[in-house]
Computed example of a mutant assay.
Amino acid sequence: MNLRNSFRLVAFSEGVSYILLLFVAVPIKYLGNNESFVKMLGMPHGILFVLYIAMAFTIRPEQKWSNRTFALVLIASLIPFATFYVDKKYLRTTT
């Protein structure tokens, strides 16, 4: 598996973990008074988030991203569903 495909996998996993954390675990915590899902999903999401950022720095020279594109890729890690946009716009090949 090449670096781009590895980054795609991490971006997808980070995006899914973020969505689960925000839209499943946090509501259960506050509406159901049950912290277990936040504790269960928080650490894996944190690891995936750090891995996403580190891999973005690693893959940047290979992808020849401009400063603007690179900033968008980094900001995408903070916005729900945005890592899926990064995958579609910047990582998928058109072959």
Rank of each mutant, 00 (worst) to 15 (best):
A54Q: 00
T69I: 11
S13C: 14
V38M: 12
I79C: 10
T83F: 06
G46P: 02
K89D: 13
L78M: 14
M40V: 11
L74N: 01
L74D: 11
R68E: 15
K89G: 14
Q63V: 00
M43S: 08
E14P: 00
L41C: 08
T69M: 09
L41M: 11
Y30R: 04
I53R: 05
P27K: 14
V16Q: 05
N2W: 06
K39G: 10
M43V: 10
V50P: 02
L51P: 00
S77A: 15
I79H: 13
G42T: 09
G46F: 02
Y52I: 01
S36Y: 08
F70Y: 12
R68G: 14
S6P: 01
M1Q: 06
Q63M: 14
L21G: 10
K29M: 07
R4N: 11
P80T: 10
T83W: 03
V16A: 15
E62A: 07
F57Y: 13
V86D: 05
P80K: 14
F81R: 07
V73F: 02
V26Y: 12
M1P: 02
M43D: 09
N2H: 05
L72T: 01
H45F: 12
Y52A: 03
H45I: 02
I19E: 11
V26T: 11
M43H: 07
P61C: 09
M1H: 03
V86E: 04
M40A: 15
F84V: 01
N34R: 05
T94S: 13
V86W: 03
Q63Y: 01
K39F: 09
N34M: 07
L91H: 04
F7H: 03
I19M: 11
I53G: 07
L91E: 04
F70R: 03
L9G: 11
L3G: 04
I47Y: 11
